[in-house]
Design a protein around this nucleic acid. Sequence first.
DNA 1: GAAGGGATACTCGGATACGCTATGTCCGAGTCGGACAGG
DNA 2: CCTGTCCGACTCGGACATAGCGTATCCGAGTATCCCTTC
Lengths: 177, 177
Amino acid sequence: MHPGRMRTLTGMCIVPVMRMGESVEWGLHCCVTLGWLDDETPVSIRRLALWFDLPQEYLKKRLQALARAGILTSSPGARGGWALARPPGRITVMEVVAALEDGLDALFCCTEVRQRGMGGAPSEFAKPCGISSVMRRAETAWRRELAAHTIADLMAGSPHSAERTRRNYQRMSSTNA
Amino acid sequence: MHPGRMRTLTGMCIVPVMRMGESVEWGLHCCVTLGWLDDETPVSIRRLALWFDLPQEYLKKRLQALARAGILTSSPGARGGWALARPPGRITVMEVVAALEDGLDALFCCTEVRQRGMGGAPSEFAKPCGISSVMRRAETAWRRELAAHTIADLMAGSPHSAERTRRNYQRMSSTNA
DNA sequence: GAAGGGATACTCGGATACGCTATGTCCGAGTCGGACAGG
DNA sequence: CCTGTCCGACTCGGACATAGCGTATCCGAGTATCCCTTC
């Protein structure tokens, strides 16, 4: 178990209900940080985990998912590590969420309950289920909002965090890691 | 196990990832049907489960959640059953979803990762996390869309389903159940 | 016909079970870069 | 100086463990309706 965190990051046993995984937050912060650092040399998983105090092995697993989605690149060997695969302005938040939620087909999955049982409506199957339509509309609004923002937007959101990050990262690199 | 359904409704072992529970679909269909039936006498859980071919005991549990949320009313005793607690036009889809997802505080839960580890930003805590803001905006769009539709809208979506439902339900009531 | 009592048909809430997911850890295999030795 | 070898740092992918949730079932207790008996 990761030191100092017995029951997930929150310190208390969280009760996730219809919620995105924590790794979405991790992945987005990693993308933003990699964008800020942007100094050609990739960042190792050890430093990334140290930077945010996250479980190294599991973070690696999630970043691998981002690499499979073409969002990050990983270079093996010594001096290897992780970097953005594209300029931050061309990576949307939606992409990161979808990659980390492993596909994320639909928040609401219509199982055509209306066709089941004695209330079945066999003659109207051509028309889409009204419930499903409403759900889909809502989800589209959600996706559109997420797709409208990129990593670059997040980076620009707190300008002097960028410089502080670069400074602190250099300090960390020189001291121990 | 419910007959004919060994592994959830879909017939195959579904892989829910960041998804709403099936009971949301059940609950919405039940609300719409209760709205269509609307003949003063409440509908028993047995008929409701038979109507959609859903597991009776578990459906009951979910409808109890809707009752706690003030969306349905349940009357005990013989001739008891379930009915809408309010006119369908005053029950939003959002309410039903929230009740069945048991609170549904937030799709994305910011754990303030930015404060953790060596990259911590103690001086800027006052400003909200940009990632969290984007997520919240997207989720608000989703909620707004769900809150903009009521059970009455769903009922009106397929007009002659209403009559067919009433007819079939009467037939079901007279035959066996 | 009215009152009382039991059967029936429901609901409520708790206890239990199971499969799957998210989270977390560990390990072997592969790969890159640098150090180091031998010519 | 050049080349070959070795080692360390790093990634990849799989196996495994754990806790919590959604789904599902069952049971005891309560309650309202109906019917049947009794007066």
